[in-house]
């Protein structure tokens, strides 16, 4: 192998440890399985947890898609993809969701539904939803085991009293299979419902915090909410009450990035670039 580097970079012991952890993560949906988390040649916080999962999963017959903020071409996605291509000779990469067997993503779940033969790996900066109410991991582990989330609910309730809204914007606490509450990684609230009853296995990897957790296919995933204050996804309606559309593909259902164009106008575009391009191709035949 080039540079004398093992296929998929990690030595086989490291891969086996990750594989054992992944299996426990699936068996205990939403539980954060600790693992040793080797140092990767990119920064902690740049997706090393997701990367270690991908490297422990990937084989020469896989087709990989890497996205960041929904885009295949953002610097970090390119960087991760190049590293995986370099260390995994024989694999294919793609930007088309439909062609991928393995998808590594930061901050988004792809716009279109995943299939049963695909695996989604999400990069996680903060794995524990309880960290906002309890700094000690020792205590959090007991709270999780007992499914004691009263303090988290109180926090949400205080929000409602103060702002008349739940102010958690992303990393929305979500209860898996009726027991563990997870931090679903910094995906927008728009993506949270996709965790529920997913066709594909969804794996979460936190490199710096050394945790792996999973939402198995066809699993219950419920964002925390109250009967009278429901969970709400991001609102993209304009001042006339119309759903904003992507300026490139005109989709009125996708999650949108907002920015200011060179004329100083506020404009919106799909965050998922692959979806947006496919919509444009459909429109132009």
């Amino acid at each position: 192998m080039s540079n004398g580097i093992n296929f998929a970079f990690l030595d086989e012991y490291a891969k086996r440890e990750i594989r054992r952890s992944v299996i426990k993560a699936i068996c205990i949906p939403g539980y954060q399985v600790p693992y040793s988390s080797r140092e990767m040649p990119m920064g902690r916080g740049f997706g090393t947890g997701g990367l270690q999962l991908t490297l422990a999963l990937i084989g020469a017959d896989d087709t990989l898609k890497v996205i960041d903020q929904g885009s295949d071409d953002s610097v970090n996605a390119v960087n991760l993809r190049k590293f995986i291509e370099m260390t995994c000779p024989g694999i294919d990469t793609t930007t088309h969701l439909q062609e991928a067997t393995l998808i590594q993503s930061r901050h988004r779940i792809p716009e279109q539904a995943l299939r049963a033969d695909q695996i989604l790996v999400l990069q996680v900066p903060y794995p524990d939803a309880l960290v906002i109410v309890e700094p000690s991991e020792d205590k959090r582990k007991i709270m999780h085991g007992e499914a004691d989330y009263s303090r988290l609910l109180v926090k949400l309730y205080e929000d409602i009293v103060k702002f008349d809204e739940i102010t958690i914007s992303h990393r929305y606490p979500t209860r898996i299979n009726g027991h563990y509450i997870i931090d679903p990684s910094p995906i927008p609230r728009y993506d949270v419902p996709k965790l529920h009853n997913s066709e594909a296995l969804i794996l979460f990897g936190a490199g710096r915090e050394k945790k792996i957790y999973a939402v198995p296919p066809h699993c219950l995933a419920e964002p925390l909410a109250f009967d009278d204050v429901p969970f709400r996804i991001e609102d993209f309606t304009d001042s006339h009450g119309e759903r904003r559309a992507c300026k490139l593909c005109a989709s009125q259902t996708s999650f949108l990035d907002e920015f200011i164009d060179q004329q100083g106008e506020r404009v919106y575009q799909c965050s998922d670039s692959d979806f947006c391009e496919q919509q444009q191709e459909l429109a132009h035949g």
Partner: peptide
């Protein structure tokens, strides 16, 4: 061998996922 184990793991993973 590593190559076999990667493929076997994916099979075991599929088994536990479903």
């Amino acid at each position: 061998q590593a190559e076999f184990q990667q493929a076997a793991f994916r099979c075991v993973l599929e088994a536990f996922s479903r």
